[in-house]
């Protein structure tokens, strides 16, 4: 059998979908489930626009098969609502066309949760997984740093 029905847990909702074994998680999330906030940019793991969170870790969904994601806890950009980092992106104008933004936010959200006191080099290590073509990255830097500050403040 080259296809099967899988059960996926995305943003705390359960989805039963028929997928080809070779379908990437990106494809399934977008085309089968209709959560189009996760963006295709290269399908090669190079741009990070398709970043989602799986079991607490940032993952490029173009480089994972859907069948691998069964029984895992998947969060997409639609699963984040008014988070610190989203507010900071608005505040700091850290997007223009907005296409890379979901990926940056998913990745940045992991950063502020995993590394609340991230150094500059840690921030770089996280954020260099994604590419933005509109901004000169400075606004993204400001937004992530503001989110780190605000998140620590909120958590006190």
């Amino acid at each position: 059998m080259t296809s099967r029905i899988v059960t996926l847990s995305i943003n705390n909702d359960q989805y039963h979908v028929h997928v080809r074994n070779i379908d990437t998680l990106l494809f399934t999330i977008r085309e089968k489930i209709g959560l189009t906030g996760t963006k295709p940019g290269c399908l090669n793991g190079d741009c990070g626009a398709c970043t989602v969170n799986i079991n607490g870790e940032a993952i490029k969904s173009c480089l994972m098969l859907t069948v691998e994601a069964e029984n895992k806890c998947i969060t997409t950009i639609e699963g984040l609502q008014d988070t610190t980092i989203q507010k900071a992106f608005i505040e700091k104008f850290a997007f223009q066309c907005g296409y890379c933004t979901p990926g940056f936010i998913m990745n940045g959200n992991d950063l502020i949760h995993n590394e609340p006191n991230a150094s500059d080099s840690m921030i770089k290590s996280y954020l260099e997984s994604n590419i933005c073509r509109c901004t000169g990255y400075q606004e993204i830097e400001e937004a992530v740093k503001e989110a780190l500050t605000n998140n620590n403040y909120d958590n006190r």
């Binding site: 080259t2 296809s3 074994n21």
Partner: peptide, 12 residues
């Protein structure tokens, strides 16, 4: 945006 091959999948 797809992979053309059809594949079997096993998870031993």
């Amino acid at each position: 945006m797809m992979i053309a091959y059809d594949v079997d999948y096993y998870n031993p």
